[in-house]
Design a binder for these strands. Sequence first.
RNA 1: GCCCGGGUGGCGGAAUUGGUAGACGCGACGGACUUAAAAUCCGUUAUUCGAAAGGAUGUGGGGGUUCGAGUCCCCCCUCGGGCACCA
Length: 811
Amino acid sequence: MNNFDFEKIEEKWQNYWSSNKIIECDLDSEKPKFYNLCMYPYPSGDLHMGHVRNYTIGDVITRYKLLNGFNVLSPMGWDSFGLPAENAAIKTGIHPREFTEERITNMKDQIIRLGSLYDWERELAAHSEDYYKWTQYLFIKLYEADLAYKKDAPVNWCNSCKTVLANEQVVDGNCERCETEVIQKNLNQWFLKISNYSEELLTGLEKIGNWPENVKTMQKNWIGKSEGAQFELKVSGSDILFEVFTTRPDTLFGMTFAVISPEHELMENILKISDNKNQIKEYIEKAKSKSEFERMSITKEKSGVDTHLKVINPMTNEEVPLWIADYVLINYGTGAIMAVPAHDQRDYDFAKKYNIEIRQVIMNKESQKNVEIEAYVEEGVLINSGEFNDLNSHTEASQKIIQYLEKNKMGDKKTTFRLRDWLISRQRYWGCPIPLINCEECGLVAEDIKNLPVLLPEIENYLNTDGSPLSKSEEFVNVECPKCNKPGLRETDTMDTFVDSSWYFLRFLDPKNSEEPFKSKFINDWLPVDQYIGGVEHAILHLLYSRFFVKALRDLKMIDVDEPFNNLFSQGMINFEGAKMSKSKGNIVDPEGYFKSHGADALRLYILFMAPPSDGVDWNDGGIEGTKRFLNKLWENLAQIIDMKVEENNIDESGTEIERQLNQSIESITNHLEKFEFNTAVSDLMILNNNLSSYLNNTELISSDLKDQIIRDVCLLIYPLAPHFGSEIYNNYFNDEISKEDWVKPNKEKLTNPTYELVIQINGKKKNAIEVDRGTTQEQAEEICKTKFNIEINDAKKVIFLEDKLINIVV
RNA sequence: GCCCGGGUGGCGGAAUUGGUAGACGCGACGGACUUAAAAUCCGUUAUUCGAAAGGAUGUGGGGGUUCGAGUCCCCCCUCGGGCACCA
């Protein structure tokens, strides 16, 4: 056997795998199903190390599960709508489609070059007409089910990109892409009612399969459930009523003022009767002109204006002032609060600034803490609270006060969620058009299903000076209403690309269906995804939106599943020189060079070896030399074993030893792969390789059985991680294809060494160690201590003996 | 501020239920081969005292539980991630 010529070998096997379609999945196979999914990438043009890590991990699982007899579905596609293509179009004039498809071709080549197996027969792309047709179809279904609606909403607007930004695209008040300051702008936009599912999205996390705890926590916090009470406050001397929400009904007696948000719908009514109109108007204007960022972080100092009106505390009938302040947010709770400065730090700060009374109603009898310097938010018992005095705060008193409010028809128990509806409108070109029409007669009308897809129009200029670029195509905008045939106007917004990615894992099961988005049967048989693998940066939004989509489609009776992803693995990010890799920073490390210099297998091994896969790492190629060396050395060792002289029935001591070591490797590597501990799986392979080297130093003869076993097992063990290598040697020796094999199981009888190293401790500290037979008794061990090491056992206070491990003498 | 994770040699990182800390790899140093280099092979490599045998110290810091703690408990420092006026 010649040396490990990775370039030739890798090409050979990549051709073999694609021409023999070894991963093409027959959905109706008898074998147990395994849906293995890597997050489909945005086609940026070049694979970066984050992709390499993702697709290597995915491929390890694919190949490992194949060998374990599963019918593995492992598809790949493209998240191919989105900003970069459009920005490039604005700059260069190249059509986003052309730009995107070129990049897809390139990236696909690189994924194949990495040696990862994907069922390319199922390839899909979000921007292709036969995909976005069905995105539109699903949108219409959601619309018909009352899960999509339009409303005016202040949005983050970047004046330079001319687009709405999602909250996560706003960094420190500036646009993530161009760093222009983000301003607020009101637009009439589309939302999806994800908030209908808040409770189920939360409880679903409890029932889900194996998800990382931190991801579940992030989702939980994002959904942000809080329980409390809601009740009405009446403005005295008027018929103005408004609701407030509180999680601390136990502090109700401490309410010394109330606050409503400047955007509150009752503001008109308040203005009418307030004698402080001018100041209020001025304040509202000021609040409006502030960006959300200014309102939240720069102006830590709270501000507000007195309405000179009073509201009535429902418990005490006492009149307290009503203020307007922008620290109360319009889109959380009811947009108005009861303020209890003694027990809420925000209210406390406000009360201090405007000299409003601070009345303590909770006291901890032990600490005797008062509210002179800050709000008291911890537990205690109620004081100054009438009949509720002496009840325990938070729990007991809250319950009792809620009961009181309910009994007297003043308020209710209430649960509020932080999760807001999903704004999906984008004033951009390169996205999925929203398939709705504004008809003069009928109002908003969904496009007829048979007219789908609503195609993206061809336009000249992608720059959108005020509205969406789609509005520039008159042909696109002016249509007949599908209901009444009168003139109508199309929606010109496109959808957030998270909509595309919220159902692509469904389409993979039926990617060529031209009648419907998918056959429900396939979904019901194959979902949830058994293993979903992707970057931790998608821990919240993509996963939450996909979960919402699946639940909504279930309620539309299109599918019968509750959750899209049963097991989730989130890999850590790969940074470079401490920073996130990104095109704009110019710090992308791409794998192309390593394919040439070290080969795909060495790169795969290295990226697995460099750190536990869920940890973030800083890219550093210092160690890749090591995995290349390892492959060369293993190649050489196996070649030597193949060339060894055969003599049957001649398993000598070193033969027994290598057999045992092999079995230990099988057991350990299997465990590591099951637990996604790929770094230690690689190190086990290296240890096995070192064992082979010493074996070869010690012996010249081998039985044919042992030879077959070593070659087969080593090839199988390395195959999921370095598939070209494993395939080639297996094929050279057995003249067959390794993927037909079954995964190896350790021979339990050949796992344990007959001897072990007995550790001798004095007072728990290791003093000596000696090789003894397995099963050595305490008496024998004590005897060894006496005779070999001169330790006087009789003087010992205590002797601790752990069989097959250690003896500890306490003196 | 709140909620998650982390902190182990020069570096990346290993360590079942508490039981030999530093596996494996990189780097470095020494040697072999070579005219030379690369590649390869052999050896050394936590710190410290010692010529050596051997000893002492050591998993961010401090305390505790235990025969025994990287691992469990309490306090503190620090780094990374998420959320952040959410009533």
